[in-house]
């Protein structure tokens, strides 16, 4: 029943959005797939689903709505979200408020504040700060410091990598390394991408 519900919702959003030519399909941090639908220039809604190597009942699903606006070189986005796993073990909700500022056309500074509640880990204010520097045509270098959970747990991580941008496709492979003392230093490859249909 739950799978049917998700399938119907996904199909509905996908069909409606594709018909309107305002959908983006993609991947976040290697382990989440998503679809967003731009309702108009300022609003979009999205559905994200984990692809963990876990049983289906432990997969995570998240819905989000976002408001986006720009004032000259400053862009602002507010994205509230709600997510849960299928067996109801836990849920999370919060909002990501992001501000980006473009400097001299090449360099963009970006900061995100993320008040985040997880029913298991409880409340935490997470954040991310970073910069993107265009180095050659569609190619940019990306560097970030983040405490926003890549999966479920908030961790202090440095993420560095590249971003390729074309008209309809963007790909951002990042190397994510924990900088917290006492934690595993195992680097992760966090690949994100989006395809605007």
């Amino acid at each position: 029943m739950k799978r049917l519900l998700i399938a119907v919702l996904t199909a509905f959003i996908s069909c409606a959005a594709v018909a309107a030519g305002r959908v983006e399909l993609g991947l976040r941090d290697t382990r989440f797939i998503y679809a967003t639908w731009n309702i108009n220039h300022h609003f979009n809604i999205g559905l994200e689903h984990s692809v963990y190597s876990e049983k289906f009942k432990l997969q995570h699903i998240r819905i989000a709505a976002a408001y986006h606006t720009s004032i000259k070189d400053l862009s602002i986005e507010c994205k509230p979200y709600f997510g849960t796993v299928y067996n109801g073990d836990y849920y999370d909700l919060g909002a990501q408020i992001t501000a980006g500022y473009r400097i001299a056309g090449r360099l963009t500074l970006e900061a995100t504040v993320n008040p985040h509640y997880d029913s298991g880990y409880e409340y935490k204010t997470c954040w991310r700060a970073g910069a993107t520097c265009r180095i050659w045509r569609e190619l940019s270098a990306v560097a970030q410091y983040s405490t926003i959970p890549e999966y479920r747990q908030s961790e202090k991580r440095v993420r560095v990598g590249l971003r390729f941008d074309t008209e309809r496709l963007w790909i951002m492979p990042l190397l994510s390394i924990s900088v917290a003392s006492g934690q595993s230093k195992s680097p992760r490859v966090a690949v994100s991408m989006g395809w605007r249909i």
Binding site: Y52, E54, L58, H60, D89, Y151, Q153, Q183, S184, S186
Partner: peptide
């Protein structure tokens, strides 16, 4: 200490 628990147990509290 080297076990990336967040990665290997993404749905668990660890």
């Amino acid at each position: 200490a080297r076990w990336d628990l967040s990665y290997f147990f993404p749905a668990c509290l660890t």
